[in-house]
């Protein structure tokens, strides 16, 4: 179901991004997101990982190169993507259900239907019965779950995640990683996951792209061959340890390149 087919869902071709203050965040970046894959983007801070996601999401425009979608922004294209920010980014005056329903309401879906679909999305992330709570009544992990439910409520083909679990404790993070893999398989998603954790990237992804900075570019690409479903026992195995070492070494090389 999640076998990556050769056709890329979206492709960054020679993408560059120069900000107004003259900083070059990205230069000549080529990256293809294959349909159905789980891709992690790993790199030191300031290497433009977030910018890659923002370019794909259309929240920023490339100053060079282009973002090419498999088909002109249609059902599978830009119209159907979810974004999970580093912060949960919940509107504090709306309940969890109200937050999850927001993308639908903005799109003009009727309120009763939006609420029902929001409940379904909340249940999918393990938050049934918490729809009436406000953000301040939720723990950090629950807020992030609400944020993921909101990203999934529009049934996107592509999910972009920008270091979503960086602020969570280790246990919560591992639980969310497992749940994320389950959602990825159940909903046949394509995921691009930005992280600075080697372990997280190895546990989750089929492919890890390691970026280097100044200017931001792809340094190396590593395939994690271990089969899914990956459970806690995968974390204990030798394959996992070997992959972590390999990715770690690649990251060190990418960071060493700057000197």
């Amino acid at each position: 179901m999640n076998a990556p087919d050769a056709a890329a869902l979206v492709r960054l071709e020679g993408a560059g991004k120069r900000f107004d203050n003259g900083t070059v965040a990205l230069a000549g970046l080529d990256l293809a997101l294959r349909r159905g894959e789980f891709l992690s983007i790993l790199g030191p801070s300031g290497c433009g990982k977030t910018t890659v996601l923002r370019l794909i999401a259309g929240l920023a425009q490339p100053s060079a190169g282009r973002v090419a979608w498999a088909e002109p922004a249609g059902r599978d294209g830009r119209d159907a993507l979810g974004f999970v920010f580093q912060e949960p980014t919940l509107l504090p005056w709306r309940t969890a259900r109200g937050n999850v329903a927001l993308p639908l309401i903005l799109a003009g879906v009727a309120r009763t239907e939006a609420r029902a679909r929001a409940e379904t999305a909340l249940a999918a992330v393990g938050l049934e019965g918490a729809g009436h709570l406000f953000a301040r009544q939720l723990s950090g992990g629950m807020r992030m779950r609400v944020s993921i439910a909101r990203a999934l409520v529009t049934r996107p083909a592509l999910l972009l995640m920008d270091e979503p679990f960086a602020a969570l404790d280790e246990i919560t993070r591992e639980r969310l990683n497992a749940d994320l893999l389950r959602l990825w398989r159940e909903q046949a998603l394509t995921v691009a996951f930005v992280t600075h954790s080697v372990y997280e990237s190895v546990f989750l992804s089929m492919r890890v792209v390691v970026m280097a900075r100044a200017p931001g570019r792809v340094a190396e690409e590593i395939t994690i061959a271990a089969p899914y479903p990956r459970t806690e026992s995968f974390r204990a195995g030798a394959d996992y340890a070997a992959a972590c070492r390999q990715v770690s070494a690649a990251l060190r090389r990418a960071m060493g390149e700057e000197a």
Binding site: A57, G58, L59, L81, F83, F85, Q86, E87, T89, L91, W93, L102, P103, I105, L106, A107, T154
Partner: peptide, 28 residues
């Protein structure tokens, strides 16, 4: 919040929607 404005942009909220769903409650 800037992330919230990004969120609105992502879902292509219209100007009045950004005002009604985000700016006005934030200003309350």
């Amino acid at each position: 919040d800037h992330n919230m404005l990004d969120l609105m942009a992502l879902y292509r909220a219209r100007r009045w929607q950004v005002l009604w769903y985000l700016r006005l409650p934030a200003a309350l």
